[in-house]
Amino acid sequence: MHGLINRSIQCFLRDTYGAAIWSAVTREAQLGFDSFETMLTYDIAQTNAVIEAASRLLGRPRDTVLEDLGIYLVSHPNVQALRRLLRFGGVTFADFLHSLEDLPGRARLALPDIDLPQLELIDHSAADFTLICRSGLAGAGHVVVGILRAMADDYGALSVVEHLGLRNGGEAIMITLAESDFTSGRRFDLALKAVAE
């Protein structure tokens, strides 16, 4: 699994629970090193070992840890770059949902060897969607659920996002938009320099 993904998990655990927890996770997962490098590739078994170790040490189910990771990726001040890249997906949350299938392709523009989940969006109506997430990492759909919930907040859209379990050879996520302009959401400028947050 790409170092960037492993490093994201590391930063999530470190920023949310502290450096001591991250050290304990590296020992529990028997990584043999204390930090992932973003630009290297690691065996997916190590990624799983880290998630399992974090789940045990924090006393939280694996799915919850993964969903919290998704929320962190969008909302934590330390990872603003990712939130900005996601916001390029569209002007509204619905636009953003329609752009999700392009996400792995967009990521590969910058990192040709990144292995993001394959996403398939089915629009049942203008407000009801099913997203199928296929990934080598079990539970990746829960990360996507966390990202979608946080992005809905970011856009100021009121929505319901639920993980439906395995379906169509992937993890199914149900998304229902209640109101597209629930709040004004967070500001997004196309130009990076214009951001003064």
Binding site: A81, R84, L85, F88, G90, V91, R106, A107, L109, A110, D189, L190, A191, L192, A194
Partner: peptide, 25 residues
């Protein structure tokens, strides 16, 4: 201070901005 709305829906300008920013990251 241009936004998405200042470009045609078919324009790849926003994709270009995306790539520039992703590359910088």
């Amino acid at each position: 201070a241009l936004t998405d709305a200042d470009f045609a829906a078919t324009d790849l300008a926003v994709e270009l901005l995306y790539v520039v920013e992703a590359k910088s990251a």
